[in-house]
Design a protein around this nucleic acid. Structure first.
Lengths: 242, 242
DNA sequence: CGCGTGTTTGACGCCGATCAAAAACGGTGG
DNA sequence: CCACCGTTTTTGATCGGCGTCAAACACGCG
């Protein structure tokens, strides 16, 4: 499969992402050095590695996670089109989390070495990267609040409403499409056991907020989920991406 | 009290922070428009506000937190000298968390309007801001892992080891100084009830890893804490700050 | 002395972990 | 087509960690 030129980037058509000026687009298209395709379940980046690359998700679902010595796993966040991958490793050296594909994904590959010229020659793009980092931080704040202070049912509802909203906005999910996770993923995100996660998701299904299928979770009533989570989705538009 | 000129910034003497070039120093000293002093327990920034400022902690302890409607509170992270405050609000508009002083703190105040010229004229400083944001993200990753997958005892040990290490490096804490938190703060950070937090901290005290005083927590054995948390502190030096 | 804030302790109950096993499914090979 | 398998979901029983309730204790302060 040939690579997608940035000029024809499918994300650019979405209202959710901001437009580029011509010089920005020109720079980014030279910044991009290739594409990477990864199969579901495969590791994109490994904790402890020193990757020479920075990536943006072009299509598909992935997730970031960390593990403790004894195998306990915590999923930190989910990755969707437009998300920057590997910034921590790029800016600070070693990766301290891993990244795994949830569906087949393709990533745009950027040359780390050219990041300096991005900062020096395209301050607006540098600002975008900061914006994205701040946005990621904000998501983590929300997850931390959720895991720390919400009950199991609220947590689950929050997670699914969050994933649904974000995925729809980036064009990754149509209204009745499945979020491609297993209950094990949900458990590792919420900090719960898989058994209790199952019972919790069952309650959400009984309330007809979701339906669980072999392809993942179908959100039937995202407003209802947000309500049981005590959360309101952030509806701002026009976020940047690289 | 008159303000501290950036040329004499006490943080600059610490090995932990990187040096500035003359032009950088010059810019930053003009970027800084004043200082803000806040008493313990007072709110520096409020969730939902639109602050026109960006801050760096010059001295003292603070923390970031979010609350749910019903009052449940989650502390997201602790703020120490060199930490940037309000970046999320500056870059993305509204603040989605609050900031409170834990000790008397003083902050350097930066004009948000000049952030553009920082990005356009001082790419190295823009890079530093990205670095700091990535670093904050990394800390949140660690906290998420902790709350999601560690036991109460491990969580508490991790938190105290983390705070101790960071505080010592920025010159905020001498070897036997107290971390100025109450057990309520610890509980709200770990996602535990205050009663259970107390019983957990007691276990750490019984093992002679910490001692609790009316001024806060004294770390007696930070290696021991890190060990019971199953964690190794990151010993990298030379981080940037603004 | 009385009060407020913070720490400590005990009793009890529940949420969620753990253990165990059964379904339900798609995929594979005979 | 069917037997077998691995993965995932589902359910029940039991256990334990942590929450909740309640009350004491310690301390600094006016």
């Amino acid at each position: 499969m040939s690579t997608t030129p940035c000029e024809q980037c499918p994300l650019r058509g979405l209202k959710y992402f901001r437009d580029f000026s011509a010089p920005e687009l020109d720079f980014v298209s030279r910044f991009k050095t290739g594409e990477l395709s990864v199969e579901p379940g495969a590791i994109v980046l490994m904790e402890g590695s020193h990757s020479a690359h920075l990536y943006t998700i072009l299509q598909g679902w992935g997730f970031r996670y960390k593990t403790l010595e004894d195998g306990r796993r915590q999923i930190l966040n989910y990755l969707m089109p437009g998300d920057l991958v590997g910034l921590q490793g790029t800016v600070m050296g070693e990766m301290q989390h891993s990244v795994e594909a949830l569906s087949p994904i393709t990533l745009c590959v950027f040359e780390r070495g050219r990041l300096n010229s991005l900062f020096s020659d395209h301050p607006s793009l540098a600002y975008d990267i900061t914006w994205i980092a701040a946005s990621e931080e904000r998501m983590l704040d929300n997850h931390l609040l959720s895991i720390g202070r919400r009950t199991a049912l609220e947590r689950a509802a929050y997670l699914l409403a969050f994933l649904y909203n974000k995925a729809v906005r980036v064009g990754l999910l149509e209204k009745n499409g499945p979020i491609p996770v297993t209950q094990q993923h949900v458990a590792d995100t919420l900090g719960l056991s898989i058994v209790h996660t199952n019972k919790t998701l069952r309650k959400l299904a009984d309330r007809e907020l979701i339906r669980w299928t072999d392809k993942g979770c179908i959100v039937l009533d995202d407003a209802g989920l947000a309500k049981t989570a005590g959360w309101e989705a952030d509806s701002r538009n026009a976020r940047p991406f690289i």
